[in-house]
């Protein structure tokens, strides 16, 4: 797909690593500046979508298979709810992070980090999954049958 568009290929190759890095920065720096799980997930997904648009869906699926995105989708939500259950098991209330570490502040920090990471994974997984699903429709015949997992 688009083998002749060398400018696009080179530029996107240059751009994708900074985009992924920026997504991680937004994810983990969200406590201090604007940012957080939702934005990071979207930016992360945008990097893969750009890759898929330029190099073709088949290549993108080899880089990050559909199974992986679906796992991310489910695992993120599990991580979020799991953080809540963890605080529950430690004797606190559901999603009350103060109990997670020795001091309430450290606990809050850890809890927020985990929860934001869960949100980021779910959003990235959801957006990539949706994009793959739409793109598989466009390609039609020459796509291997959806893996029935």
């Amino acid at each position: 797909m688009m083998h002749q568009k060398s400018v696009l290929r080179v530029v996107s190759k240059l751009l994708i690593p900074p985009i992924l890095l920026f997504a991680l920065y937004v994810q983990f720096h969200g406590d201090f500046g604007p940012g957080g799980g939702f934005q990071a997930g979207v930016i992360f997904a945008a990097a893969f979508i750009l890759y898929g648009l330029i190099f073709g869906i088949a290549t993108a699926r080899r880089v990050i298979p559909a199974v992986a995105t679906r796992t991310m989708l489910a695992f993120g939500l599990l991580l979020y709810a799991g953080t809540g259950v963890w605080s529950l098991l430690l004797g606190g209330e559901f999603l009350d992070y103060s109990i997670l570490a020795s001091t309430p502040k450290a606990g809050q920090h850890l809890g927020i980090l985990l929860v934001e990471f869960g949100v980021g994974m779910t959003v990235a997984g959801a957006m990539t999954t949706i994009f793959y699903t739409f793109a598989a429709q466009t390609l039609g015949g020459d796509e291997p049958p959806e893996e029935e997992v």
Binding site: G36, F38, G41, V42, V123, A126, M127, I130, F134, Q137
Partner: peptide, 20 residues
Amino acid sequence: ILTAIVVGVATTALALALVV
């Protein structure tokens, strides 16, 4: 609104899937 935007795009995707 932050959360509503992301939920909004997810539901938009669902609506577009229905259109397809």
